[in-house]
């Protein structure tokens, strides 16, 4: 079989599914663009896309068009990237550390981001020139490096990584609490909590150009490692026996996951639940093999977070509910249903 024939054999059977996924994602993005705090006519979507993408001449209300193109579209795209990235991170970490409770924030990234953002806001680091995002990214990276060093010093196995992650998270969460208790008033604490719980309202096109490439690259890295991830099913020893370069694969995947999570946390705060539960839900639907689990989780995470973002905008009229609250409120019962259904079927 030639390479070309192999490629055709590889792609042909999955094409319909890829197509279906693309259609579902496109519909979700469309819904994310149409539904929001204020009503926009569906016709406007076509008009704005025609003007922006093909340079067509249409008379558009600048505010309506701006809301659609500059606020909602980037916001929805980042929500999709964020959902996909968090779900992928969950899949990868659950496989690597063989722990069902592993989530993207396992390695201290979220706690570090929180401490970094709070340091910037409360200690005045950067004198207002550095935004919370930059502080969050710095904190996330610092926390991860600390956790990785600690895990390495403790022996470097998956159990050590989990424990080091817990220790690191506790340390950075305590730092955050200390800073807030020391110097914040109620209004600031509210502002920071609002931000830490996840917030997509500040998303603009520059965030899209950060989030999409990072998550896209992370997705490709995960996709290229579906077999190694499968091989970890029976532990890293078994993976090595199956020809997996365990250290290198762990390093590449954890680096990819950390970069994705740190970027996403710094852009939109730490949105919980997605990375923990989407992989489990998708596993129940498509099985444990990563060739299906990786793309299906990315798709499900993307659609789920777009839906959660829509809900966060319309749940209480005139007010935005933190998206992290919505993901848990909507996601937990949904996951319960999947669990129950799966038990009946088994």
């Amino acid at each position: 079989m030639t390479r070309r024939a192999a490629l055709v054999a590889l792609t042909l059977p999955v094409l319909p599914r890829v197509g279906l996924g693309a259609v579902l994602l496109a519909l979700a993005v469309l819904a994310g663009v149409i539904v929001g705090e204020t009503a926009l006519p569906l016709r406007l979507v076509g008009d704005v896309l025609a003007v922006k993408l093909w340079g067509a001449e249409r008379a558009l209300d600048p505010i309506d068009a701006g809301i659609l193109w500059s606020y909602r579209l980037p916001r929805t795209l980042v929500a999709a990237a964020c959902g996909a990235g968090l779900a992928l991170s969950g899949v990868v970490l659950q496989a690597l550390v063989r722990n069902a409770l592993a989530d993207p924030y396992l390695l201290g990234v979220s706690a570090g981001a929180g401490a970094g953002a709070v340091s910037v806001a409360l200690l005045g680091i950067g004198g207002g020139a550095i935004g919370l995002s930059a502080g969050a990214f710095g904190g996330a990276t610092a926390a991860f490096v600390l956790v990785a060093l600690l895990a390495r010093a403790a022996g470097g196995g998956p159990a050590q990584l989990v424990l080091a992650g817990i220790a690191g998270s506790q340390l950075f969460n305590a730092l955050t609490s200390f800073l807030i208790a020391k110097s914040a008033n109620a209004e600031q604490a509210r502002g920071l909590m609002f931000w830490l719980l996840g917030n997509l309202s500040g998303v603009r096109w520059p965030d899209v150009t950060m989030a999409l490439p990072v998550v896209g690259a992370g997705f490709l890295v995960c996709l290229a490692h579906v077999r190694p991830l499968d091989a970890f099913s029976f532990g890293s020893g078994a993976a090595a026996a199956l020809g997996i370069a365990v250290r290198r694969v762990q390093l590449v995947l954890i680096a990819a996951v950390t970069l994705m999570t740190a970027t996403l946390v710094s852009l939109v705060g730490s949105i919980g639940f997605v990375g923990l539960v989407i992989p489990h839900a998708v596993r129940l639907l498509v099985g444990p093999r990563h060739a299906r689990l990786v793309p299906a989780s990315a798709l499900a995470g993307a659609i789920f977070l777009i839906a959660a973002d829509i809900a966060s905008r319309v749940l209480i009229p005139g007010q935005v509910v933190p998206i992290g609250v919505v993901t848990a409120l909507v996601g937990a019962p949904g996951f319960a249903l999947i669990l129950i259904r799966n038990r009946r079927r088994a």
């Binding site: 705090e37 701006g66 809301i67 606020y71 207002g128 502002g191 309202s201 905008r313 007010q319 935005v320």
Partner: peptide, 30 residues
């Protein structure tokens, strides 16, 4: 002091915008 989206503010299109000036520098937008 509620948190309200720019989308809602822009759609309401107010005649006048009043900005707060403060010495505090905890958020960029201070």
């Amino acid at each position: 002091w509620p948190v309200v989206g720019w989308e809602t503010i822009a759609r309401a299109n107010p005649t006048v915008i009043v900005l707060a000036r403060m010495d505090r520098r905890r958020f960029e937008a201070d």
